[in-house]
Write a protein that binds this DNA or RNA. Structure first.
Lengths: 339, 339
DNA sequence: CTTGGCACTCTCGGTCCGAGAGTGCTGAAA
DNA sequence: TTTCAGCACTCTCGGACCGAGAGTGCCAAG
């Protein structure tokens, strides 16, 4: 595309994302292209409309970017906006003050992200196909019932009630705990599986089986922790003035199974993904853009962080701040969990 | 109040809560009081308006209950609506399928409550001033850093990173764990405090101190787990058609500190509390009613369950279903945690 | 105390209209 | 070939207006 068309598209996106009002040739002329006439801009706008990058709400209104327009913008025209020190400081403070457990941490990250992007946010806990066991513990509840507590990498606690075939006292369990810990701590689920194969029948094998089951659940992500926050921020945007729009988004956010699918889009793909309007798989997110990135304490342990807002979103700012939060959260998690 | 006035007030509330349209004398006459003339009903309505129980959106509209009107209704006129078997079954199923840990359980309870009341719900984890320790565990992270894992009554896990003054190996920690467990498990925080007083200086005392700190946090509720769900249900109600109303509610729900205050209203008070419109302390909840009750596995361990909706709420249904969910959740928790 | 009758009030939806914003086109200038 | 001033045209938006409809309060008679 010619240079000037690009500049005009960029200007339209910039103007529209801040004002939320369809932008006309005069506005562009006076604010961005003083030495061009509005007529010239008009003809360029007409071209951009033919190319499918812009559209008009009605015949005699200004132009609004289409989904393809935004796509072109983020692919070719966007430059990351520098983050004010104030915001940087805020992110750092929040991360420093975040609780040491994964649940609390993830909640805090979602909160921070929503706050700095002024949109809704989602966050999933880091997980990896090679989760390692840090520690485990067995607590007797009833003679034939045991609570299995697993501490995974990242200080992620998992618990599960296990009904055993044979009764066991707490003393026996404590002994078993010690044995299992020495065999398992620091090991991955693959190694746990090997242990399981070799274990003699009985309580030990039973427990190892459950440990593996918990790890499986965790690794497959079906039990993954996903939180969201900042829905109230969406209400600031005129797109959500009447609530039917919000209903759709809330359905996605409040239904964990949708949300998990949403986040799964990114895994294995590039490190930043921007899904614009109609590109969204779920029809509920028409008119919304989802920006996703990964974060986590290590290469093996990755979670997803996302921002959800109207397609008319301050893309460069959102991406920059999302990445800043991801970086902050990763660092903090590495500090806490990488040990 | 005379009997007939009461019937009319009841009819107005019932009609308005289902139709959301101001109710006039004719509607009442044809649907509730066939052998009374509309003129008579009109004069009664005028009286009820003078008494402050009803109001008119404008001079020539039907009547709408005021907050005092709803108050009178719930205090004197409401009879609990029986719960359909279908709904009862749903609640039971959900509770049976709820995860065994408190976090998961509370989330499930909130979800269920939102679903059966078709409003937003909040739930806090049961807590009590006499929380008992079931088990604890110490895991070495770094030479001078220990992860303290506490399993409290109700299978509630708490973790905290502790920086110790002296280095300790995992072996030492394991020994200490055994000692602490034998001294603490099954004991309340008071007893833990006694242990702390008597403990010699050093790692053991240090750990006991932290255990007490965690318990304190937990008992004071400042760290209490509070979740909400079902915001999407609110959008069905015409009250929330334009989103400014929702903004206010979301501010309360998404700010945990507001929410905690909201739930605190109930503790120590009666077992069911209905806060109607302007009775709400926070101005954000004007036009909303909050219905609260307690639940939990035992007398000592109580959490709060709440429904948030427009003041025009199906009170008798909401209260009945809230109590049913509270009962179901309590039973299930007693089953899981009372051991 | 109840009730039919009646005048009155207010909202709601529809229509109409003018102002304003923005467009596309055209023909001339560069 | 590109740019641009001029101009007619289109469409929305807000306000004014209006009639239908719903509901009221009051009053006088039963």
């Amino acid at each position: 595309m010619e240079n000037r068309k690009q500049s005009i598209l960029r200007a339209v996106v910039k103007e529209f994302t801040t004002s939320a009002v369809p932008v006309g040739s005069q506005a562009l002329q006076s604010r961005y292209f003083v030495n061009l006439s509005s007529a010239t801009i008009r003809s360029e706008l007409a071209d951009l409309t033919d190319l499918g990058y812009l559209t008009q709400p009605h015949t005699s209104a200004g132009r609004v970017p289409t989904d393809s327009g935004y796509r072109y913008f983020v692919d070719f025209l966007m430059d990351l906006e520098p983050i004010p020190d104030r915001v940087k400081g805020f992110i750092d403070d929040e991360m420093r003050a975040a609780p040491a457990d994964v649940q609390g941490m993830v909640e805090r990250v979602a909160m921070t992200l929503a706050s700095v992007t002024q949109n809704a946010s989602v966050a999933s806990a880091p997980q990896g196909s090679l989760a390692r066991i840090k520690h485990l513990d067995l607590v007797s509840l009833e003679p034939k019932e045991v609570l299995l507590i697993l501490l995974l990498e990242g200080n992620l606690l998992r618990q599960q009630v296990v009904n055993t075939t044979e009764a066991a006292s707490q003393a026996q369990l404590t002994k078993l705990t010690a044995r299992l810990n020495s065999g398992l701590s620091g090991r991955s689920s693959d190694e746990a599986r090997r242990h399981y194969e070799q274990a003699p029948l009985g309580l030990e094998k039973e427990m190892l089986g459950r440990v593996i089951a918990v790890l499986d659940l965790y690794e497959k992500g079906s039990e993954s922790l996903v939180v969201h926050d900042g829905v109230r921020n969406l209400l600031r945007h005129p797109e959500f003035a009447e609530s039917s729009r919000l209903t759709q988004v809330l359905e996605v956010l409040e239904e964990t199974r949708y949300l998990t699918v949403l986040l799964r889009q990114l895994i294995g793909d590039s490190d930043l993904q921007i899904v614009i309007g109609s590109e969204n798989a779920s029809s509920q997110l028409q008119g919304c853009t989802v920006v996703l990135t990964t974060y986590g304490p290590s290469e093996r342990l990755k979670g997803v962080l996302g921002v959800i807002g109207p397609t008319r979103m301050a893309y460069s700012q959102t991406v920059a701040r999302l990445q800043a939060v991801a970086r902050g959260a990763s660092d903090r998690m590495a500090e806490l969990a990488g040990r």
